[in-house]
């Protein structure tokens, strides 16, 4: 019979070590002038990081312009979100601490089909509104190149069904701010053979590639929207892909116990990193995986061990950088 572990909550600052180390690449932090830092001192936060809550006055000086996350009332600039004040010359904006996905064209995203509509699918991307995948933006099975016909429209559910996970690329925006995405490449399409997890979208940064194949035999797709797909390795040779199978719902038969363990381990490493607010990329995941090998897989849901793995991974990355 397994044990159930009960813990007391801990104060938020107790694991700041990994946090401060993890935030390495964010160097566009404030250059606040005296005025704002004096406000910061008054509001009992540190002078370098001005944290505000919704409705809090950022400045009473009407010379400043309001940016994202702020509004003006009685000639004062107030914050509309909980976050950190950012200032560029006269423009004041607030970067929210917790936000939905803000996409850019060309982003690789992982999404879940929520609705099948007229000539389009609605896709959940963890953004403010569902993205749209047009029937004309997908490849036909077999790679046939032709205009989509009414017959294709009738069998849309054979391509993507509600609940299906897809990897796609942001193609353009609609006038209402919704994203239009496409899967017109063999890299993109339906996801199989693995498990899904979700992290804060801000933790996944734009990189050269978002498709990774780790040494431990695990494939990884880091969606910029914070949705991550960890799956068993499938040898990829874009010339030899069976184009008839791109819309199949069947997992491959030979996912071994070792594969499953590796997938769960990688997924837990990502969770451990995300819990410490560390940016997620393939390098740090590999280091976290190495660090995790000394622990039993089932122990990896434990907070203490997750913290340890994340700290070790951050140290390893810093050692590598010299």
């Amino acid at each position: 019979m397994s044990e159930i572990a009960f813990y007391s909550p801990v104060p938020r600052s107790s694991n700041s070590k990994a946090k401060s180390k993890g935030n390495h690449s964010n160097d566009n932090d404030m250059d606040l002038d005296e005025m704002i830092s004096s406000v910061a001192k008054n509001s009992s936060t540190s002078a370098t990081l001005h944290v505000v809550t919704p409705g809090e006055v950022i400045t009473t000086d009407s010379a400043y312009m309001r940016g994202h996350g702020t509004y003006v009332e009685n000639e004062k600039v107030l914050s509309s979100v909980a976050g950190v004040v950012d200032r560029v010359n006269k423009l004041i904006s607030v970067r929210p601490l917790h936000t939905r996905y803000n996409g850019e064209i060309g982003d690789v995203v992982v999404g879940r089909i929520t609705e099948v509509a007229q000539k389009r699918w609605k896709v959940d991307l963890n953004s403010r509104s569902d993205a749209i995948l047009m029937l004309s933006s997908v490849n036909l099975p077999g790679g046939v190149q032709r205009r989509k016909q009414e017959s294709d429209e009738l069998q849309m559910r054979n391509f993507f069904m509600e609940g299906d996970l897809v990897v796609a690329e942001v193609q353009s925006f609609f006038t209402d701010g919704a994203y239009s995405i496409h899967t017109r490449s063999l890299k993109y399409g339906k996801l199989r053979n693995g498990s899904f997890l979700e992290v804060a979208p801000a933790l996944v940064q734009r990189c050269k590639s978002h498709f990774h194949s780790l040494a431990c035999g695990v494939d990884l797709i880091l969606g910029l929207n914070g949705y991550i797909w960890v799956s068993a390795h499938v040898p990829q040779n874009l010339d030899e892909i069976d184009t008839e199978q791109v819309y199949s719902n069947k997992n491959k038969e030979d996912i071994t116990v070792q594969d499953r363990e590796a997938i769960a381990r990688v997924a837990n490493c990502i969770r451990a990193l995300a819990a410490e607010f560390i940016f997620i990329n393939d390098t740090i995941i590999s280091f976290a995986y190495e660090a995790s090998l000394q622990h039993k897989l089932k122990d990896m849901t434990k907070k203490e061990i997750m913290h340890q793995i994340a700290t070790e991974a951050v140290d390893a990355v810093e050692n590598m950088k010299g």
Binding site: M1, Y7, E261, L297, K298, M300
Partner: peptide, 17 residues
């Protein structure tokens, strides 16, 4: 082997105050 590495009868940690 469950998706988060737990076994079938395993509970996650509980934080209680």
């Amino acid at each position: 082997i469950r998706a988060d590495g737990r076994q079938r009868p395993d509970y996650r940690e509980v934080i209680l105050e």
